[in-house]
Amino acid sequence: MTTPYIDGAPETAATGPLIVSGLDGLRRAVGAQLGPTEWLQIDQARIDGFAAVTGDHQWIHVDPVRAASSPFGSTIAHGYLTLSLCNYFLPQLITVEEISMGINYGSDRVRFPAPVTVGSRVRGRGEILECTDVPGGVQAKIRITAEIEGSAKPGCVVETLNRWMA
């Protein structure tokens, strides 16, 4: 697997994460297209586990028999489960080297255009939208899209705010 590096103009990561060198490399990466990641299958055990941790046991997520008669034909992943997978995809999309740490700072926009049905496969794609200097580091806004295999619409699109510190 080859991994693209950026030390000049943005490049598209075809396989593996885009690797940037330090905060200057991150600043130069604005506009870079990231991914896609490998596919991840969404099974009922993952959905049930998310329900157990969050306390969200709505039948459309955890009752396969009842959900079979729903408009979706099966259980669906929680929207926030799909959102949380965007953080799972992030290190598969970009690695920033020569920093002390990276932290999640928040999100500017989150949408769930299509339901993720049990048994679906999802993967991440990204784009570095902007970088802003913050005390001690750089804040990057990265749009992450959780694509659903075979679907014209994604399961989630989020503009994440991530901080990488010197």
Rank of each mutant, 00 (worst) to 15 (best):
P154R: 03
G79I: 04
Y5T: 14
A146V: 15
A140K: 10
E147S: 02
A51T: 06
A152N: 13
V30K: 01
D24R: 00
Y80N: 05
T117Q: 12
D63I: 05
I47W: 05
E147N: 01
K141E: 07
Q139M: 11
V53D: 14
G35F: 00
P10F: 01
T15R: 14
E159I: 07
S151I: 04
F89N: 07
A114V: 06
G55C: 05
G150H: 08
I144K: 01
V96Y: 10
A32Q: 03
P71Y: 12
P36K: 04
C131E: 07
L93Y: 05
R143A: 12
T117I: 14
A14E: 15
A114T: 00
W39S: 14
E98M: 11
L90A: 01
L40N: 08
K141Y: 09
K153E: 12
I60Q: 08
T117R: 15
T2Y: 14
G49I: 01
L81R: 03
T145G: 09
D63A: 15
W39Y: 02
A51L: 03
L23H: 05
E149Q: 09
A67M: 13
I47F: 09
A32M: 00
G150W: 00
T82D: 04
G119S: 03
L93S: 01
F72L: 03
T54K: 04
P17C: 00
E97K: 14
Q41N: 12
I19Q: 10
L40G: 03
V110W: 04
C156A: 11
I47G: 07
T132V: 15
D56Q: 02
E159Q: 06
L85R: 04
L161M: 13
D133W: 02
R123I: 06
D43V: 04
F112S: 01
T15V: 14
I99N: 00
V134R: 12
W164L: 13
L18W: 06
A68H: 03
V122I: 15
T54S: 10
P10H: 03
V30G: 05
F89T: 01
I94L: 11
A14D: 14
A146Y: 12
E149T: 10
I47Q: 06
T3R: 08
V158F: 05
G102V: 04
A67P: 04
R121Y: 10
D63L: 09
F72Q: 11
D133R: 13
V157E: 11
V110I: 14
A77N: 09
L83N: 07
V118R: 05
V65T: 10
T3D: 14
A67V: 10
E127L: 12
M165H: 11
I19D: 06
R28C: 11
P91C: 02
P17R: 04
A114Q: 12
S21M: 10
G25K: 11
L81I: 08
L81W: 09
G126F: 05
D63E: 13
Y105K: 06
Q139H: 02
D63Y: 01
G102F: 08
G35N: 05
S70M: 07
I142M: 08
L90E: 06
T82M: 05
C156D: 13
T37H: 06
